[in-house]
Design a binder for these strands. Structure first.
Length: 954
RNA sequence: GCGCCUGUGGUGGAAUUGGUAGACACGCCAGACUUAGGAUCUGGUGCCGUGAGGCGUGUAAGUUCGAGUCUUAUCAGGCGUACCA
């Protein structure tokens, strides 16, 4: 007997792999590449728990398998190392974030190293290292000097736009922009540098914009939409308010259509694609111009229900709309002002939760371009300034929000669909036959002798007809709107990438490329300055001269030739948006990556990570990559070809039950007989829900004198599924598991827990099964004296069948990530082969090659024990042969009327006709045929024999 | 409200994609071995029934010779999103 000493084995091979550089990868034109990537972690102070490595293990298995199948596999790892927690910690303790970040990284690394991943650590990246963020800054500068042409749907150099402005002004430019501008070339040429810069900001892909931002006073910074949930910050849960600020923004919205179209070309889960589609929010509609009766000015609204033009009974403006001032009449001014200050007093959170109807009449009226009727213009917070034009036409009969508003303020409701009952609520469905358009006795205004009549059409037809009419008579235009907003790219924080920007006479100017990176300066105070500047204002090294040289002394800023630098930093998603490209060529200091590396690695073939990034990182990355694709850096339009979303691992908490006002604890099964309080107990002193009472007494001083009421001599704990967190004492550290069972057992068990994509609770209870399996596998190799038991025997047909069944199953499972069933298959195959007393090395070397991706350490040990010199990482992936799987006889169920009645043996190659007659002739069939008549027979070789009978006619 | 996903033993989960439901593992029960252990091995384990047999994949219909799988309705849970006109 030789013991399975996993500690020794795992340590031995982990050391050897490092020494032999087993996982180092190089571009190799002779082999096909395969790029496997995990979402890199933010190294938090809490370290890894067993949930974190789940995705890494799954992708590592896949990567190792691909390598054995002959691919040149890139499987890198790094750290998303800028972020708020390190900064918050720094504010509290004065520890520099760089110090804590590096400590956390080292801790992560040592935890990861124990699990036996095949990462190429020579390619590690850290978003906070200057060599890395140089290229984040570089990309930002490229975005700054680009604009987006809607005609070619592509980013182009800003110089081209400037040339156009010089020659033709804004005419003929169809660009993504903040607002539509119209000017001539003469106007452009007459403007000074400041004005020209302002105008160009309207077009740049990275631009300064006055925007409403999510301002979090507690954090002292701006947050992106995906960093705010239900009006509070994701990090910390602090209230968030709306505030207008001048911010760096990325024109993500320019790429809306491409981001939408790209989804069709990638293999992501439907739910993530759907989430992104909703986030992009394409909606096809119509813009219609309305004239204000009092002032004769016009304004534009956006609607998807152009068919309801004849049911408009009022207009509504968003309170923030610039039109509000124009339409408010003197008589209504007091009322309107009162309402506006009310709206301003409401926080974003209140507005989100509380949907009570509020609003105020502006005093003005609009003219419906189809009926000529005067309709009142109202102001209400239910209309959002940021979507469409910030103004709507209200059709209370067919929109529930307009309906609620109309009922509240007593405004008329005109139904436009036959049979629609609007006495209790609006009829929102886009179905039915249009009527009242125009209503009997009313007219539809004429345009060029034509008038619009929709009566009798379906809603669909009416929308199309109205669009066409509006377009042709220039009452408005067909318009596609997207919900996707531009990303706000400034943060008022310290621990992030500094902007490579300085302000020359107030004009934002890029620091020359050769001066990059602009390094993050050391500061000793991470809070905003006394004058309210962001934390970077505390730095003393911040200024640049006209030639782009760094000036060390900030006091020189007032002199004419020295200019202040941008004090904002970039948000978390800046560094994580293109890290997958940097892994391809991580040490390149001349370019983000070389042309050759980009051509070879192309894009990520398999990306593994959590679905919580669906509307954040996974959108920004796609945007960022599309931009880099446009400027020729990235070679594929989509960064991540296939995406697997690993599920979350929840915690499984254990409880003890204390009898009220005592220090006595009662076992789970008896707790109902007492008045008890459940108390979380550390899951690490509980095994299979049985409490280690001695460990419990030692756990905390107050339990030292604890007494227990046991059942069957044991203390049984209760349990619940909760989030894995320190406060619930349910955090399981992978180190503990590795120490007790070994990395191979941990890897196997994490996969055995269930499908990778499913969320599931961690339950250490089942782990013995996987450990037992590895022991059995180990024992299969050694005789009772501890010598290798394998022989050169030719395997039997039975051996080959067990082996090839396994190869087939595992090979198929690898591609579908069904690793839990693969492990079952290993268990079955090992049991079968040992049961067959099969010790042929021709069988076992294939078994080891198959299991190597799952349990690399034990596989490597056994692989070498069998006399192999090279690493099992390069063991060829076995191919299976169907011929071994064929059986001479097959046992099939014989059904009568769809119900299986008995089993019988059939020759494997029997035809359906033969199978049927054999089944009918079987003695067991007789009782089902008594007084019954065969109506029909269905026989499928290898599957089933079914005989349909019905009572014979008398 | 809208969108997406999931409902199978005491538990985690299988089911060759429409063909003998419950593989594999945990747990539990019984037994073996043993200077009691949280070790190992063997057998059993969906539910009801002594039994033959019957019932069983959230619920209810439907298609089919045959449905966990397809269709419709409905209930429950989860995730995302939210006054997007």
């Amino acid at each position: 007997m030789r013991e399975y000493n996993f500690r020794e084995i795992e340590k031995k091979w982990q050391t050897r792999w490092v020494k032999d550089k087993t996982y180092q990868v190089h571009e190799d034109e002779t082999r096909k590449k395969f790029y496997v990537l995990n979402m890199f972690p933010y190294p938090s102070g809490a370290g890894l728990h067993v949930g974190h490595p789940l995705g890494y293990i799954a992708s590592d298995i896949y990567a190792r398998c691909k390598r054995q199948q002959g691919f040149n596999v890139l499987n890198p790892m790094g750290y998303d190392s800028y972020g708020l927690p390190a900064e918050q910690y720094a504010i509290q303790t004065g520890q520099h974030p760089e110090k804590t970040t590096i400590e956390n990284i080292d801790r992560y690394r040592s935890q990861l190293d124990k699990i036996g991943f095949s990462f190429d650590w020579d390619r590690e990246v850290r978003t906070c290292s200057p060599e890395y963020y140089k290229w984040t800054q570089w990309t930002f500068q490229k975005m700054f000097s680009s604009w987006f042409s809607k005609d070619v749907q592509k980013a182009l150099p800003i110089e081209k736009l400037v040339e156009h402005f010089q020659e033709k002004g804004s005419a003929g430019i169809n660009a993504a922009c903040s607002e539509e501008l119209h000017f001539t070339s003469d106007e452009w040429n007459s403007w000074d540098a400041g004005k020209q810069s302002d105008v160009l900001m309207n077009y740049r892909l990275a631009f300064l914009g006055e925007t409403m931002v999510n301002w979090c006073p507690r954090l002292g910074t701006v947050l992106a939409n995906d960093e705010v949930v239900e009006g509070v910050s994701v990090r910390g849960g602090y209230p968030v308010e709306q505030k207008k600020m001048r911010q760096w923004c990325l024109r993500v919205s320019a790429y809306s259509q491409r981001l939408l179209d790209g989804l069709e070309t990638i293999q992501w889960s439907d739910s993530i694609k759907e989430t992104q589609k909703n986030w992009i929010g394409r909606s096809e509609g119509t813009e219609v111009e309305f004239r204000i009766a009092e002032t004769n000015e016009t304004f534009t609204i956006f609607t998807t229900r152009a068919d309801t033009m004849f049911g408009v009974t009022f207009m509504v403006l968003a309170p923030e709309s610039e039109l509000v001032g124009n339409v408010t009449t003197a008589g209504q001014k007091a009322e309107v002002d009162k309402y506006l200050s009310y709206v301003k007093s409401r926080t974003e959170r209140e507005r989100m939760i509380d949907h009570t109807v509020t609003g105020v009449f502006s005093g003005s009226h609009a003219i419906n371009p189809f009926t000529g009727e005067k309709i009142p213009i109202w102001i209400s917070e239910y209309v959002l300034a940021g979507y469409g034009t910030g103004a709507i036409m209200a059709v209370p009969a067919h929109d529930s929000r307009d309906y609620a508003f109309a009922r509240h303020f007593g405004l008329p409701v005109i139904p436009l669909i036959e049979g629609a009952d609007v006495s209790a609520g609006s009829y929102d469905a886009k179905e039915g036959i249009v009527c009242n358009s125009p209503a009997a006795g009313k007219v539809s205004l004429q345009y060029d002798g034509e008038s619009l009549v929709l009566n009798g059409l379906t809603v669909r037809e009416a929308i199309a007809a109205t669009k066409e009419f509006v377009e042709r008579h220039k009452i408005g235009r067909v318009k596609v709107n997207y919900r996707l907003r531009d990303a706000i790219f400034s943060r008022q924080r310290y621990w992030g990438e500094p902007f490579p920007v300085y302000y020359k006479n107030g004009i934002a100017t890029m620091i020359p490329e050769e001066c990059l990176p602009v390094e993050l300066p050391k500061v000793d105070n991470f809070l905003p300055t006394e004058s309210g500047e962001p934390p970077l204002g505390n730095a003393q090294v911040w200024a640049w001269d006209e030639a782009g040289r760094k000036i060390v002394d900030k006091s020189m800023i007032d002199e004419k030739t020295v200019f202040p630098i941008e004090l904002y930093t970039m948000p978390g998603f800046a560094g994580s948006s293109a890290y997958y490209l940097r892994y391809m060529d991580p040490h390149n200091d001349k370019a983000l990556l070389s042309e050759q590396a980009a051509e070879y690695w192309q894009n990520v073939d398999l990306y593994v990570g959590g679905s919580e990034h669906a509307t954040g990182h996974l959108i920004y990355s796609r945007f960022w990559n599309k931009f880099l694709f446009d400027i020729g850096i990235s070679k594929k339009e989509e960064p991540f070809q296939k995406l697997i979303n690993q599920g979350m691992i929840q915690g499984r908490s254990n409880f003890v039950y204390r009898i009220k006002d005592t220090n006595t604890f009662v076992s789970y099964g008896l707790k109902d007989q007492y008045d008890t309080t459940p108390i979380h107990v550390d899951v690490n002193i509980v095994r299979n829900d049985i409490l280690d009472t001695e460990a419990f007494k030692a756990w905390r001083p107050e339990y030292e004198t604890a007494e227990f009421i046991l059942e069957d001599g044991k203390y049984v704990c209760g349990w619940a599924i909760e989030k894995m967190s320190k406060s619930m004492f349910n955090v399981v550290n992978p180190d503990t598991i590795v120490d007790r069972y070994g990395a191979d057992t941990l890897r196997l068990y994490e996969m055995f827990l269930g499908p990778v994509e499913q969320s599931k609770p961690w339950d250490t209870n089942g782990i013995d099964g996987c450990h037992r399996f590895l022991k059995k596998l180990w024992q299969a190799f050694w005789d009772k004296d501890g010598n290798l038991r394998l022989t050169d025997d030719t395997p039997t047909a039975e051996n080959m069948k067990s082996l090839h069944k396994l190869i087939k199953k595992v090979t198929a499972d690898i591609e579908t990530f069904s690793y839990n069933t693969s492990i079952s298959a290993f268990m079955v195959a090992t049991a079968e082969l040992t049961g067959q007393k099969c010790y042929s090395r021709h069988v076992w070397d294939k078994v080891i090659a198959l299991i190597a991706p799952f349990a690399p350490h034990i596989a490597e040990e056994l692989w070498h024990a069998m006399g192999n010199e090279t690493s099992v990482c390069d063991a060829p992936w076995p191919a299976y042969d169907e011929k071994y799987l064929k059986e001479s006889n097959v046992r099939l169920g014989v059904q009568f009327n769809g119900k299986v009645r008995f089993d019988m043996e059939f020759p494997a190659d029997a035809t359906p006709q033969e199978m049927t007659s054999m089944a009918l002739a079987a003695p067991e069939a007789a009782r089902y045929l008594e007084e019954m008549q065969v109506v029909k027979t269905i026989a499928i070789p290898g599957r089933i024999v079914n005989i349909v009978v019905k009572p014979a006619r008398s």
